[in-house]
Structure formats: structure tokens, C-alpha cells
Design a protein around this nucleic acid. Structure first.
Lengths: 154, 154
DNA sequence: CGGTCATGAAACATGTAAAGTTACATGAGG
DNA sequence: CCTCATGTAACTTTACATGTTTCATGACCG
């Protein structure tokens, strides 16, 4: 395991769901993502709480998209995941008594804060519909002979 | 342990060194950073290779600043550390066969790439001299009664 | 020259967090 | 009432930054 890939993973799941009729089980999505159904439920939980997806138990149950792809941005999805830490780097201590460290923290914080703001703005500019359209463009470029069901087979 | 704090740590060390006459031992710097001398040598190795600092063995040995604080930016220091990973988030897989994942990766990569570019530009704008000046301003604001030697005591 | 102090570097230990796994409870159909 | 699917908690695994131990190398000092 290396970096947090929840955002990447959940977007992958959503776009696949959009291509499939009817509810999809965690187990199926786990196959798509080559992971465990519980991992899928975990990352979907935040989206469910925000109403972006809906889940149903029992026979014929599973996950269903419950939002307008035009209206939801990557920023929204990021927030639904609990706004996980963006940067792999940070200050050694947050509230240092040392004035040197205060100066270092202040300089680094400002740079990182601005980069974060830009990233959030970028993510807010991309909707799920944008992503889906990009996928369909790639599909068309391939002549549409792409099989979603087998694309993840090992 | 949480996030990579090498950049924060090495800047802290450099600013302290600037306030001290003559060479400084890893052991002393380790005290300042509340860590181990080996950790100090480890993060300083990259700076030594680039000539930003100089090290000497034996009696009276230690570390010495060997660069112009006006000329070296935080970006330079970041590079000297080996340009460690900036983001805590990333793609699940880098070269996916799945077209959906390709679309997801493309969108995320672009956002992250722009945020990274901005961050690098920000870091390139701040010199070690800027940081040092900021520290001295904080020092003056305190009336200059700040003792560097004891600022890290527990 | 031998003793001591310092860096250099490799090898190993530890702590933390993401991701993976197991287990069981809950509810929906059939 | 049996099976399927989600909901969740607890536990395991893995990766990695950091911490630690150890020894080699070289410099200075008496």
C-alpha cells in the first residue's frame, strides 16, 4: 500500500455504475476494482450519506446512482470521502515554541494552502459528467469495441 | 509518525545553523530537532551533495553552511531532498487497461499537476534569506529576549 | 602513534495509517 | 425461513517515514 487512492477508486466505481443498468453489488464492484467488497462499502458510505448513491439490501439489491452527473463535481466526491489529507508533506510540529520553526511553518503553510486552494478549484471544475464524457470519447476512439465486463480480468 | 517532515526539518536546521558561529555537530542539531543524529545526517546528505552545506569529520568538525541564503530557494532544498512525493493521494494504478480508469487518471493527474506546479512556483519564490528575515522579525517582535539554545528544551 | 570526536552508511527496529480480511448483525425478497 | 446483500466493528497485512544500533573512516590532539 502506498498512497490514499480512495478518490481514484470511488470515481472508477461511479463511472462503471453509470454504464450498467439496475443496481450493482459491492461484490461486482470489488471485482472491477480488484479489491474486497468491504472496501467498496467503506468508500461508498460517505457518498450514500450525502445522497449521491443509494443502497438496497437483499435480493436484487446493491448500489444505484442517485445524483445528476452534471451537478456533482470531483470536489463534492472528495468532500463526501471526508476530505482526506492532500499532502504527503507537513510540518514537524504544528504549534512550536521555537521562533525558527514558526517562521518555517508560516512559509510552508502559505505555499501549501495556495496549492490546496488551486487543487480544490480544479476538482470543483470537473463534474462526473465531464469524466463520463471523457470515457465515452476514449471508447469511441477505440471503435466502441471495449468490453466493460472483461476490462479488469487478470 | 504521520507525514513526511524532512523539508520542514531541514529548514529548521538550516536556520538554526545560520544563527551559530562555527561548525555544528549532528548531535547538537538532533537536540534542536528532538531527534537522532543519524536522522540529521540523513536529511543533510542531499544538501551536502549539492554543496549547500559542508561537513567535516573529527575534532571541531560538524556542519557548516556553504551557500548564499539569498540564492537558495525552498524549491532548491526540496530538490536536494530528492523531490519527495508531494501528495498523499494518487491513482490506484498508473497504467490501467480500463478506459474508465484512464479517464479518471487523466482528470486527476491534470488537477494535481497544476497544483504541484503552483506549489513549486511558490517554493521557488521563497529564499532561505526570506525565511531568516521572517525569523528575525519574529525575534524583534519579542524584544529579542529569545534564547535559541533553550528554545527546544522540554 | 593511540585516543577521541565527528561524519558516512548500512542494517535493523518501531510506529502509523491505508488497505485488505474476517465475522457477524440487519433487513429484503423469494 | 432461507438466501442474498448491505452495515459495521474488529483484526491483519503491508508500506513507509522515522528512530536506533553498529561499525567504518578520517581528523585532530596530546
Amino acid at each position: 500500500m502506498r498512497r490514499d487512492s480512495k478518490l481514484s477508486g470511488v470515481l472508477h466505481v461511479l463511472l462503471h455504475m453509470a454504464e450498467i443498468e439496475g443496481p450493482v453489488t459491492s461484490e461486482f464492484l470489488a471485482g472491477v476494482m480488484q479489491t474486497n467488497p468491504v472496501v467498496v462499502r467503506r468508500i461508498m458510505a460517505g457518498l450514500r450519506d450525502r445522497g449521491y448513491v443509494h443502497s438496497e439490501k437483499g435480493h436484487g439489491g446493491g448500489w444505484r446512482i442517485a445524483c445528476d452527473f452534471e451537478a456533482v463535481t470531483l470536489r463534492d466526491i472528495y468532500d463526501a470521502l471526508g476530505a482526506p489529507e492532500i499532502f504527503a508533506m507537513g510540518n514537524r510540529s504544528e504549534a512550536p515554541g521555537c521562533l525558527v520553526e514558526q517562521a518555517v511553518n508560516a512559509a510552508m503553510d502559505e505555499s501549501f494552502r495556495e496549492a490546496e486552494a488551486l487543487l480544490m478549484a480544479q476538482l470543483g471544475r470537473v463534474t462526473l459528467a465531464t469524466l463520463s464524457a471523457d470515457f465515452h470519447a476514449r471508447l469511441a476512439a477505440r471503435g466502441g469495441d471495449f468490453n466493460l465486463e472483461t476490462a479488469h480480468a487478470v
